[in-house]
Design a protein around this nucleic acid. Sequence first.
DNA 1: TTTGACAGTTCAAAAATAGAACTATAAGAA
DNA 2: TTCTTATAGTTCTATTTTTGAACTGTCAAA
Lengths: 172, 172
Amino acid sequence: MKWKELEEEPCSMARTIGVIGDRWTLLILRECFLRTRRFEGFQSALGITRHLLAERLKKLVRQGILRRVPYQESPKRHEYILTQKGLDLYPIMMAIVHWGDTHMVDERGRPLLHQHRNCGKDFDPVMVCSECGEPVLAKEVHTHPGPGARRTLTKKETPEPAPKAKPRRKAA
Amino acid sequence: MKWKELEEEPCSMARTIGVIGDRWTLLILRECFLRTRRFEGFQSALGITRHLLAERLKKLVRQGILRRVPYQESPKRHEYILTQKGLDLYPIMMAIVHWGDTHMVDERGRPLLHQHRNCGKDFDPVMVCSECGEPVLAKEVHTHPGPGARRTLTKKETPEPAPKAKPRRKAA
DNA sequence: TTTGACAGTTCAAAAATAGAACTATAAGAA
DNA sequence: TTCTTATAGTTCTATTTTTGAACTGTCAAA
């Protein structure tokens, strides 16, 4: 599977991964949410090669996640600002940070805390159900095909020549 | 920055990205949540090369995200099961899917719907504040250093030789 | 005895990334 | 005027990753 194809898969996850699913892109987006806007800012914060940075920024602009906005004439210079589509990535970023906070911290504790202006407290993100408001656990979720479905992902196009599913081995 | 170093950054996001932040790993994890457990299952569902699949599975096992469990003797065979640490990735997966559902669907609609067993309805994941229960918007969040902080990310080790920040250009 | 399922491993070729240098514009300093 | 610095890239080669395809080994069933 080529990465271009990913974006055409009938799977919202594959499509999203096709857009933001690589390490540098995720780190660039983290910087965006930390208010970095300029080429040099990204480069020095991340240590990414200038070549790759230029390429990734272009892709994010093409995808409508960042907007390239002029901030100075002669020489013309631009900064990169999150669009609404980009801002909508926030729950993904927070979910990633929260998993790291839970499973990847050392004895010193969390590197970064998040304060919710609304209530003034440091918080964790909690994923709840839009319908009943309760926290969602993986085990409580059943997936089923929606209108845009076809197959779950690539699945070799061959229509399963002979699905004979006889148990042929003794169980352990 | 090498990828090994990423995991040692004082940033929960960088550390998490070091573990799951590549395209194939995310797709493998998606398959895990769709109940795929075996090597051949992953391989045929994703079209990933066997070489990379073996490598990625090994890494996920090393990281404690998957457990390699024997399901048959002679020949010995194993399947890959999500640990609790792995199950905790669910909010990340759901956040990714939800962004795709919002921004990457075609006219046909969503490929996959998620039903919450608790309330019986198809739902969207909503990120709320653990303290006040309200949905969290990026603009309402203020980040500040926690106990494990040092710097936000790599930041060239040089301590800013001369940070003279005089405005030297006319604004646009 | 041959075939097929399963879970990998091996190896050459192609693609992506790293690292470093180079280009260009313009302001300010010497 | 010339030199240096800031910013935002581009270009080039070397290294690393990923792909694609074939190969290995165990066992069961035909």
